[in-house]
Amino acid sequence: MKKKSTFLMITATLGFAFLYAPIVSLVVYSFNASKLVTVWGGFSTKWYGELLDNDQILDAAFISLKIAVISATLAVVLGTIAGFCLSRFKRFRGRMALSGMVTAPLVMPEVITGLSLLLLFVAMEGLLGWPSGRGTLTVIIAHVTFCMAYVAVIVQSRLSSMDESLEEAAMDLGAKPGSLFFLVTLPLIMPAIVSGWLLSFTLSLDDLVIASFVSGPGNSTLPMVIFSKIRLGVSPEINALATLMIAAIALGVIATVFQMHRLKKNAV
């Protein structure tokens, strides 16, 4: 038994090293004065300065943030409704269809999703005249569609693992369906909704393939700009950008985890 647990320890340690080594090296080399990855030219923050002078990256970052906030918010609304329907309405017509359409986007290759949405937008424009052209709006619609699937799965699993007795008690006390949802169910699934929003925000901010298909000229998102830059090779500016993004996301996740931990402790 002892031998097996050392084996487990070693593989787990190696596994975590494998997960974190590239991220750590990215952060370390963003402070490297030298442009070469292998040569340590001393500590420097000059790449951060160059990053802040790069208007192309800053503009794209602004567009991406805007898209991510709007898409995450819409995805949370639609995804919560979908997750709620799937776990609280046991039987309804189209249940199979809805649960299928919620699961499939999770694994659908991005090239297929991107291509199919673009062709839909083009066909709709020809038929209805809307959406006219492609840009921020079409990217938002695309991101809402695949993010809401993630939110729905998170909310659904949270609801299924949750005790229904509180909702039943509220119903017995005469709560109308509307107030039941907003006053009882919604506060209970808030942690799932928060993590759904954060996940949608990250997924939207990170998406390259789908945005490349459905975005129009002059509306390049941050991943599109990053991709066109790193295709040509490693660039220290991107290292600096990556470090900033990793720091922001890590802080956000850690703050959320702490907050939830506190909420859980208070609840028990």
Binding site: L26, T202, I238, A242
Partner: peptide
């Protein structure tokens, strides 16, 4: 949480990190 954390950071940038590696 340590398993999930890299998943929250940008996929594109993690692939990029491997280019440097």
């Amino acid at each position: 949480a340590l398993v999930i954390l890299p998943f929250w950071t940008s996929f594109l940038l993690r692939v990029y990190a491997w280019m440097g590696f």
